[in-house]
Amino acid sequence: MSTGRVSRSDLRRVLAGRAVWAVYVLLVGPLAAGAVDARLMTPLALPGYVAFTLGSAVGSRLFPTLELWVFWVPFLAGAYPVAVALAGAYRAVRTQVSTESPA
């Protein structure tokens, strides 16, 4: 019977589990590799590229004197909550599927 309390282990898994870091690396890794060498830009970089482009477009409107490289910091920081949300959704779906018993 569940008490409804969240343990430290559950909280750690939600905020810094393997799924979080896997999603984070998938968002940031291909874009960072493509930024280093354009030949390494793959279709996997598309989600990160779209997020970085939208963020830098808004940032350029708000702070027109900043260089483009400055927008990497908010991108790297913003990718983490996205990774937590996507990993949480993955975990919820996985838990739901594993609790359903075959008929």
Rank of each mutant, 00 (worst) to 15 (best):
Y24S: 06
M1R: 13
G78T: 02
L31M: 08
S101D: 11
G88T: 04
V93D: 12
V97Q: 12
T65C: 03
E100Q: 15
L31F: 03
L31R: 07
A19L: 08
V25L: 15
A79T: 11
T99Q: 15
S7T: 15
L62N: 08
A19W: 07
P43Y: 00
M41P: 04
A35P: 02
P43L: 03
M1E: 07
Y49T: 11
P64C: 08
S56V: 10
R12T: 13
V23H: 06
S9L: 14
L62P: 04
G17T: 02
L86E: 01
E100I: 14
L11T: 06
A77L: 15
V6D: 06
V28R: 09
R12N: 14
A45Q: 06
Y90G: 11
G29C: 10
Y80K: 09
V23A: 07
R8Y: 11
L40V: 05
T3I: 01
V73S: 14
E100H: 14
S7V: 10
A19V: 05
G55D: 05
S60Q: 07
G4R: 04
V93H: 13
P102T: 13
T53G: 13
G88Q: 01
P81I: 11
R61D: 12
V93M: 09
G48K: 06
T99G: 12
S101H: 14
A77D: 12
R91G: 13
G48T: 08
A87P: 08
V36H: 05
V36T: 02
L11V: 09
F63W: 14
A32H: 03
G17F: 00
R13S: 15
W21H: 03
Y90N: 11
G17Q: 10
S101C: 09
L26T: 03
T95H: 14
F52W: 14
S101I: 10
R61P: 05
L54W: 12
P47Y: 10
M41D: 08
T95F: 12
P81T: 13
T99P: 05
A16F: 08
W21Q: 06
A85I: 15
L27V: 03
G34Q: 04
G4W: 08
V23I: 08
E100C: 11
L54S: 06
A33T: 02
A38T: 06
V20F: 04
W21N: 07
G4Q: 10
F63C: 08
L26G: 02
L44N: 01
Y24H: 00
S60M: 07
L40A: 13
S56M: 10
R5A: 10
L54V: 15
G4V: 01
R13F: 03
Y90V: 12
Y24P: 06
V84H: 09
Q96H: 13
D37C: 00
S2V: 01
V36E: 01
A51L: 13
D37M: 06
S98M: 15
T3W: 11
V97L: 14
A45H: 07
A33Y: 00
A92G: 06
Y80E: 08
L66K: 12
E100V: 15
P30E: 07
R12D: 00
L62I: 03
T42H: 04
A33I: 01
G29P: 01
L76S: 06
G88R: 07
G59V: 00
A51D: 07
S56T: 15
V20A: 05
R61E: 11
Y90K: 10
L46S: 02
G29Y: 00
D37A: 11
T53N: 01
F63S: 12
W72V: 12
S2C: 00
R8A: 15
W69K: 14
A38E: 11
R18Y: 10
V6C: 07
